[in-house]
Computed example of a mutant assay.
Amino acid sequence: MNTPAIAVITVTYSPGEHLDAFLDSLEQASTRPTLCVLADNGSTDGAPERAAAARENVHFVPTGGNIGYGAGMNAGAAWLKGQDFNIAPDFFIIANPDVVFDPGSIDELIECAQRWPEAAAVGPYIRQDDGSAYPSARALPNIRNGIGHAMLGTIWPSNPFTQAYRDGNRMDQERIAGWLSGSCLLLRWDAFERIGGFDERYFMYMEDVDLGDRLARAGYDNVFCPQAQITHAVGHAASKTPESMLPAHHESAYRYQADRHPHLWQLPLRVLLRVGLQLRAKLAVIRARRK
């Protein structure tokens, strides 16, 4: 009997040269076969189509336009479920197309998930281009650490609010985290489907935070697995179009907190958050233009 393939879903939007490196690295990331879905959000560079035409285990699935990251992942997952592929029934991988997997990294994620039977999401250690660790396993943002991080993170990176939020001093320990970076995750199919996948109201950013929170509220764990390692070109897409990406980030931050403070008596807090985040977004765009 053929070994079921590990399904890998990535959302593409003119990924350029990153995509081939991503797909090449999949060949050594697991001893099991992999099957990759390119949920394409309207690429214009032709890279996803070329990759699918050249590789037997890669499938190009247009989503109909730039529908956002979470909606793209949901579309890729739904397409997979409608096919007759021999894929592993327990786990699948979601990843950005600018990720490069270390050899054996997907196998490490699977082994970690098997050690943590309550884990619905397992995330790897993420190296940035300069070799440093990206703080990918963080505490869930609350009003206190969220506002403190937003106000002080860029001018005082070591402030206690940012340190509490990033939870970045334990990047060598296998542990439960509040949430894990959506740039690369192993997910349990049944848990993902139980909570309805990604919340598609998030166009970009914070959808992974929301996913981790909703998985935890449903009784699952988010587990950081440093034995599994990848490299990620963190922020390369956002740096190209800060005028759209930075406001989207702040809009998602507002949505996350507003959803968790929905009551009428919390209206003044939501107004304060809305005004404060809009102002911070404008300042962030100005800073980005000066660089």
Rank of each mutant, 00 (worst) to 15 (best):
A54L: 10
A54H: 07
R55M: 07
R55L: 02
E56W: 01
E56P: 03
E56N: 04
N57A: 14
N57W: 10
N57R: 13
V58D: 03
H59M: 09
H59G: 01
H59P: 04
F60I: 03
F60A: 13
F60R: 11
V61Q: 11
V61G: 09
P62V: 12
P62M: 12
P62G: 12
P62E: 04
T63Y: 05
T63M: 13
G64R: 11
G64T: 09
G64K: 09
G65K: 03
N66D: 14
I67W: 05
I67F: 08
I67P: 06
G68Q: 09
G68D: 09
G68P: 06
G68S: 08
Y69W: 15
G70N: 09
G72R: 02
G72E: 02
G72Q: 00
G72D: 04
M73C: 14
M73P: 05
M73T: 14
M73I: 15
N74R: 13
N74F: 11
N74V: 13
N74A: 10
A75K: 10
A75Q: 10
A75M: 08
G76Q: 06
G76L: 09
G76I: 06
A77S: 10
A77I: 14
A78W: 01
A78I: 01
A78H: 04
A78N: 02
A78D: 05
W79Q: 02
L80F: 03
L80M: 05
L80H: 01
K81L: 13
K81V: 09
G82R: 07
Q83A: 00
